[in-house]
Computed example of a mutant assay.
Amino acid sequence: MTYRAFTYTASAWLSAALVTISGATVMASSLRLEESSVFAGKWQATLSSTLDDLRAQKLQDKASNTCTVELLANKTVGQGADCLGAWLEQAPIGWFPDPDGLSITGNEGSRIQFFSRQRDGLYLATLKSGLIVTLERTAPNN
């Protein structure tokens, strides 16, 4: 009787472990790392105070809350780096794709801001200040 109880307990633990391991594998494989070429090109960066205000802020199109940022194919930030840097409080130098978004790097190559993927061509980051920066594709990649 004791032997049978041990077998059932061991089977239950083994089953739980296999389900957990296979679930983690499925989740990890569902996030794919996009090619760098998907991100290279021009993006519109918009600074807003809340998600609710995002559309209103874009309609205002003030120079202080929108700018064009160019992510170059060599994984550096071109035009608009100064504008984006003013919001991030550090100059963006480079970028790299993440499975669930896009990372902007500083002069030492370390990540200074992560933008999470909302949908194709739209990425969002919440700054320490609580302000929101969105990056939206403006033109197809070259």
Rank of each mutant, 00 (worst) to 15 (best):
M1E: 08
Y3I: 08
F6L: 13
T7C: 14
Y8V: 06
A10P: 00
A12C: 11
L18M: 14
T20H: 12
T20K: 10
S22N: 08
S22Y: 08
G23C: 09
A24Q: 15
T25F: 15
V26P: 02
V26M: 14
A28E: 15
A28G: 15
S29V: 09
R32K: 13
E34P: 01
E35C: 02
S36K: 10
V38L: 10
A40S: 05
G41Y: 05
W43Q: 02
L47K: 04
S49I: 11
T50V: 01
T50P: 04
R55V: 14
Q57L: 03
K58E: 11
D61L: 14
D61E: 12
K62A: 14
A63M: 06
V69C: 02
G78W: 02
G80A: 06
D82G: 05
A86E: 12
E89M: 11
E89G: 04
P92F: 06
G94P: 03
G94C: 02
F96W: 03
F96Q: 07
F96H: 04
P97N: 04
D98W: 10
P99Q: 07
D100Q: 09
D100T: 11
D100F: 15
I104H: 01
T105A: 12
N107V: 02
S110N: 13
R111T: 14
I112C: 05
F114A: 09
F115Y: 05
R117C: 04
Q118L: 14
Q118F: 15
Q118H: 11
R119S: 14
L122N: 03
Y123E: 08
Y123K: 03
T126V: 12
G130V: 06
G130A: 07
I132Y: 03
I132N: 00
L135N: 09
L135Y: 04
L135P: 07
R137A: 10
T138N: 07
T138K: 12
P140L: 13
